[in-house]
Amino acid sequence: MNTYPIGTPGLAWGDAERAQWRAQQIQQRSYHKEVLSVIEHLAADFDVQQYGELNDEPQALPLMALYSRPWQADLPVVLITGGVHGYETSGVQGALQFLAQDAKRYRGLVNVLVVPCVSPWAYERIHRWNAHAVDPNRSFFEPSPAAESAALMRLIAPIREQVVMHIDLHETTDTDESEYRPALAARDGSPFVPGSIPDGFYLVDDSEQPQPEFQQAIISAVEKVTHIAPADEQGEIIGSKVVAKGVIQYPLTQLGLCAGMTAARYKTTTEVYPDSPSATPEQCNAAQVAAISAAIDFVLKQTA
């Protein structure tokens, strides 16, 4: 039985329950201080574009993208997204760290487009959902129920066919089991089925167009930074069969996931585990940077 404090077991939430949930979401950190201020410094080396804004609070939250400079029409595009789930900190900070640390070495080789924080409202409240209790990472379809997802799809639309690689940066945290999954079951009027949290880094490949060598190149780079999640006793990670070391597969587009929003040949979703006793926040950020760089390096070798 789900004992989540909002809603009636067996009944999906209505407007009242969603409003009650939203009223409990308190701002815990500043998107302006932790993300926008960093982007301001990066503007010396990258072209910065505001592609929308969220107006769920009195203070609007701008949605920001950064482009490699100069952008060259004849080069392939690599897309890096973070913070689709706002509570997954290293997705945001890892994307920003990549821009500051590694991105410039790809100048003239590929066009790099980075959207470091897709869901700033959720980032500030350290939550998975947006202000309307909608998961942006199940909302990459038309018409999208999430403003965050809709805005990102509009941004990408003009270059969608040029994107050769998309890496979407995520975390799997202990709160997935203690907060998110119980809340999801309550919201949807479904029974809560307890699960487990994998200890370590893993990737989600596209089951519709798997690229095992691409995934393993990323795993090989990341395991120099942090440990890779093992399969559980059923040979699975989060209920999905492990198809290679640290790799599972989802039908990305079918599920409305961010990593499935383009026609890119090379797609992946990263998952780090920041609550592991064997990992620090710095390691988690570094793992995301290592994953991005390894992904781009692999693509460059294929297109050389």
Rank of each mutant, 00 (worst) to 15 (best):
S207A: 12
T89H: 08
I219K: 00
Q288V: 09
E213F: 02
N2C: 09
L96T: 05
P230F: 09
M1L: 12
I80M: 04
G260P: 01
T8A: 05
D174E: 14
E88P: 11
V114T: 14
D15R: 13
L255F: 05
I6N: 02
R107T: 14
V164N: 06
A131T: 00
L255E: 09
R138D: 10
S37R: 12
N285P: 00
A73I: 05
Q234K: 14
C117S: 06
D206G: 00
S293C: 10
V115L: 03
I296L: 03
P70V: 12
E34S: 03
D199H: 01
F141R: 09
V134R: 02
P120T: 10
N2P: 08
E40C: 03
E124V: 05
P194T: 11
Q254S: 08
T226I: 13
T280D: 09
G83V: 12
Q211E: 13
A183Q: 14
P62M: 10
S178D: 07
A221L: 11
G189R: 08
A100T: 01
Q211R: 07
P194K: 10
K245G: 02
C284Y: 00
T303G: 00
A229F: 05
L169N: 15
S30F: 09
E223C: 11
Q302F: 05
P277F: 12
V118Q: 06
K267E: 06
G14H: 03
R160W: 00
D135Y: 04
A157H: 04
A60K: 10
N55C: 13
S139L: 02
V77A: 11
A19S: 14
G235A: 08
A286E: 14
S190K: 14
A131D: 10
G260E: 08
I218P: 09
P182M: 12
E213G: 00
S90V: 05
E88T: 08
E40S: 12
T303F: 05
Y67L: 15
F192H: 15
F298M: 05
D15W: 02
E57K: 08
E53L: 13
F192G: 01
D56W: 07
A146T: 09
G82M: 10
G83T: 11
I296S: 02
R18I: 15
D297Y: 04
H166M: 07
K301Q: 15
L75T: 05
Q101G: 00
